[in-house]
């Protein structure tokens, strides 16, 4: 394709202007791999694009996005790519020297360094060799952790930390896996649902649903941070956890973004169905309809 028949700056700018004036119904430019985006050399190529003979070409099927002079293409379905400060839920896969490897549903395993965890009891000191030998007493293979992304390595690997009482080992609950695109960044990712259930929305698509634990109780008893034993869970708490977990599964099947209000609405709508039916197509679409109607009102 010659460069002459490509859109120039002007229509591109117009499209951008349109997008700002109507953010919801704005014009979205869809591209497929190998499709030229612009031949204007004023633009810089971003993720999902490459340059050939001065033409910016898409490498993905997705939506064209523009920030100032940077042109990127965003694929709708892609693996989780971390950003510093994201709250994630992960599973310990192996132990290495002074660090744990953590499955974060990303393109590589994440790394949790021994130096970026809190010691039980909140003791502040450098980690010694004896701590290194006791690593399995903190986190062992298969344990689930909630953590924050501390930094990203040059090759895209993620380093996480648990240096806060909010973060650490997970217990008293169940894991739900959904597409990462359905979880959006927000001020908090820790929610207490009124029915006595806590939900942690990991940005990597791993969601932890557990029985409610008073945050003050954790602070009062910092020794228990690395406990492997569940607290006593009543039958009612257990069914509520299961119901909320299945509500989240139902919402994700219907492509509704997961956040606290959506979960509460879905929980209310689900009460007239048995828990095991929530993941069926007919029930989940019924719930989704109710949730969508409530979210819009």
């Amino acid at each position: 394709m010659s460069t002459a028949d490509l859109p120039d700056l002007a229509p591109f700018e117009q499209a951008a202007a349109k997008r700002t004036e109507a953010t919801t119904g704005g014009e979205t430019q869809l591209v497929t791999p190998g499709e030229p985006i612009t031949s204007n050399t004023a633009f810089m190529r971003g993720h999902g694009t490459y340059v050939e003979e001065g033409v910016v070409i898409s490498a993905l099927a997705g939506v064209v996005e523009r920030i100032n002079k940077l042109v990127t293409v965003r694929a709708l379905k892609a693996r989780y790519a971390g950003e510093i400060g994201d709250v994630v839920v992960g599973r310990i896969t192996s132990l290495a020297e002074k660090r744990w490897r953590v499955d974060l549903n990303s393109r590589q395993n994440g790394v949790l360094a021994l130096s970026s965890i809190n010691l039980p009891g909140g003791v502040q000191r450098r980690k010694s060799e004896s701590d290194e030998l006791r690593m399995r007493t903190f986190f062992a293979e298969g344990d689930l952790v909630v953590a924050e992304i501390q930094s990203l390595y040059g090759d895209g690997a993620i380093a996480i930390h648990t240096r806060s009482l909010k973060y650490g080992k997970l217990r008293n609950g169940t894991l739900v896996t959904i597409p990462p695109a359905l979880v959006q960044r927000s001020r908090t990712h820790f929610y207490a649902i009124p029915c006595g259930v806590d939900v942690i929305l990991g940005l990597n698509g791993y969601i932890w649903v557990s029985k409610h634990v008073d945050p003050q109780a954790i602070e009062a008893n910092p020794e228990e941070v690395y406990s492997n034993v569940n607290d006593p869970i009543t039958a009612e708490e257990r069914t509520n956890v299961a119901r909320v977990a299945n509500c989240i599964r139902a919402l994700s099947r219907q492509f509704i973004h997961i956040h606290d209000t959506a979960i509460v609405y879905a929980y209310e709508a689900s009460l007239r169905f048995p828990i095991s039916d929530l993941v069926t197509d007919s029930v989940s679409s019924e719930i989704a309809m109710e949730v969508r109607a409530k979210l819009q009102s």
Partner: peptide, 10 residues
């Protein structure tokens, strides 16, 4: 393409 893996073209 569905997996969002970059390819130079089809």
């Amino acid at each position: 393409i569905d997996a969002g893996i970059p390819m130079t073209e089809y």
